[in-house]
Design a protein around this nucleic acid. Structure first.
Lengths: 141, 141
DNA sequence: ATTGCAAGTGAGAATCATTCTCAGTTGGTC
DNA sequence: GACCAACTGAGAATGATTCTCACTTGCAAT
């Protein structure tokens, strides 16, 4: 697939950044791209993202803050999973065969799965500690 | 929790519709609400949604089409799973203990989970049949 | 190297979902 | 029945994303 894509300077710049970082939003991507190529525009970033998304090289996700994060498509399973910390906003990718288990379950339901997205929302270890400290102090409202 | 909410006519209308249907977007919700109350406005729908979302009664999801779908929050697990047909757009809710299995996995990763979202993208049974018919015809491009 | 053409690009306008503002309404309380 | 806070409709404002247009680039045939 990748051979049939026109890889311009800007497009591969966007893709390289995504390879190195993952789950970046459009503005983060623009900022990083401009370090290497100061004249690249937001429109080009979005166009590159759309281009790769159509070709299933990357995909976009939203975690509830009203904009998308982009990342390279996992070639092996076509699937992605994240932990999203609802306090500090940290996003961590996770992997594991449980996605395949879910896909098996989905097949049982007569769905032919091409991609699974799993988002787990909660508190990361760090914030979870802070939270329990806070809770013990909060008892008197 | 629900006792401490101010339930106006419009708010409970929105909530009732969501109870009966689930994963509706704002405009679908508005259209259905107007059948019962023709003067209700889009802003009120959005405000009701925001109000309930803050109180964890409902939550919003996006399936990649650029807008949100809303549904009642599953009280038992706090979690939701969907099959999204990428061809006809049909969304079906699914349930099952595998979400709890995932939550267990998440705990192992030191994440305290309050909510899990699982989206499985693929073809529903119906579209899957159409697709395989199409594929056998497509061999000669 | 030069020409020609399709695809790529920057800048800013346009779009679309969602949120906000403001002036008018409603509900409950005294 | 007056008051105040919360609710509401209408439309303006916002913010992410896409589109338009005029200019540039890259490659093919010459």
């Amino acid at each position: 697939m990748e051979q049939s894509m026109r890889m311009t300077k800007r497009r591969s710049l966007v893709l390289d950044i995504l390879r190195d970082h993952g789950h970046l939003d459009a503005y983060e991507l623009l900022a990083m791209a401009r370090k290497k190529d100061p004249r690249i525009s937001l429109a080009t970033v979005y166009r590159a993202l759309a281009y790769f998304r159509e070709r299933d090289v990357i995909h976009g996700r939203t975690f509830g803050e009203g904009h998308s994060h982009f990342e390279i498509h996992d070639a092996e399973t076509g699937s992605h999973a994240h932990f999203v910390c609802t306090r500090c906003g940290k996003v961590r990718e996770i992997t594991g065969r449980f996605i395949r288990d879910m896909e098996a379950l989905a097949r049982r339901e007569k769905f032919s799965i091409s991609r699974a997205h799993l988002d787990l929302f909660g508190l990361c270890e760090e914030c979870s500690k802070k939270e329990s400290r806070r809770n013990s102090a909060r008892r008197q409202g």
